[in-house]
Amino acid sequence: MSETMTMAKALNAGLRRALEADPKVLLAGEDIGKLGGVFRITEHLQRDFGADRVIDSPLAESGIVGTSLGLALRGYRPVVEIQFDGFVWPAFDQITSQVSRMRFRSMGRLSMPMVIRIPFGGAIGAIEHHSESPEAYFTHTPGLVVVSPSTPLDAYWMIQQAVASDDPVVFLEPKRRYHEKGEVDLTEPPLPLDAARVVLQGSDATLLTYGPMVKTCVEAALAASGEGRSIEVIDLRSLSPLDEATIVASVERTGRAIVVHEAARSGGLGAEIAARIQESCFYALEAPVLRVTGYDMPYPPSRVEAQYLPDLDRILDAVDRSLAH
């Protein structure tokens, strides 16, 4: 059984199924009740599951995550919505100092089954603090699982897998893709939560990406194929832990790797991936690992975000530079 739906609808359907499957699953966040969230991801869920399970929170992100930690200690499985990427920082202390290490600091006695949903990334013409890509701050924190779906199919299944996880999951939703449609198989999950996917197979170079940039990379690879170049595209899906086996197998074969993300370059996830590739695939590499990323500045005004964000041409330019070696 499959259905065509947007990513927003797929997330809504996945959350609905998680709420149905386990009475301990709760949703909490700002405006997620009657309004259904500013992106409508939780639309009608409070109506159907009640205000005790779909909780409109006071406007305090540390409070939302901190109280959800308490709920998790009591045996609940809270799914928290952070309204926008740029508003997660008030909760950063709770996430990194408490949520991420509860298992560790309790000597393995306690677990922290919490999902922190964050609409992230740019290209929506927003004002400041609404287009951030905060993933590296979380992938640097041991104890957190960090994932990002790129399609409605993954969104539907990955949110349910995240809710079922006994580890805290930072769930990054590519908001610029919320309203793009895709086919969703409702019968079984296509992959485990921690697996990367080879979206396009190719033999000349590997594009490694996730979330909003998957579609952009696929478009770039298809354009390159018109010029006779065979480009592999890997959707990482899980940013921490990384599916290193899939990455290494691909780069060993193609000899060229380019990491693409919206987040700023320095200290970003691309740096970690490049380091791992060079540790594992040194003798297979034909070219340096390249990065196509946002620039090292705060996210700029929306009228220049198209120049700031990686796009098809910048990715193709990097492919050319890689193949020139």
């Binding site: 709760l26 005790d52 540390s62 409070g63 995550v65 901190g66 109280t67 959800s68 930690l69 308490g70 709920l71 998790a72 200690l73 009591r74 045996g75 609940y76 202390d93 709770q94 100092s97 408490q98 600091r105 309790s106 306690l110």
Partner: peptide, 25 residues
């Protein structure tokens, strides 16, 4: 008797969340 916390005040939120769970239970 829950775990000691060493970040000042952090546990106040945990306590309120835990109490929210007790209400639901």
């Amino acid at each position: 008797f829950h775990l000691y916390s060493f970040v000042i005040g952090t546990q106040a939120l945990h306590a309120v969340g835990y109490a929210m769970g007790m209400q639901r239970d």
